[in-house]
């Protein structure tokens, strides 16, 4: 896993979340209260919502940390 891949995966999730948000699937999470709504759209929105708030920031932070570690180790391995 490289920093670039982590950022790409995070961006893909964020883009998918933005898309389902813009087409109005948020209202379908009403399935959580047992109210009639599209189960498929509700679950998709739910998964992407929590992925956006949990996985995306972790992915971006991890990419930054990994890039920093790679840079540091690259610096320490290079000859004077």
């Amino acid at each position: 896993m490289t920093p670039r891949r982590l950022v790409a995966a995070s961006l893909a999730i964020a883009a998918a979340y933005a898309a389902v948000h813009l087409v109005g699937w948020r209202k379908d999470v009403a399935i959580l209260s047992g109210t009639n709504a599209s189960v498929l759209r509700g679950i998709a929105y739910l998964v992407l919502h929590f992925a956006f708030w949990i996985a995306v920031p972790i992915g971006v932070l991890a990419a930054g940390i990994l890039a920093l570690v790679n840079l540091t180790s690259l610096g320490s391995n290079s000859r004077p």
Partner: peptide
């Protein structure tokens, strides 16, 4: 291994 460590550290920073 480094990537897993970075994800673990990021998780420890983000969740709280």
């Amino acid at each position: 291994m480094r990537a897993l460590g970075a994800i673990a550290l990021a998780t420890a920073i983000w969740l709280p």
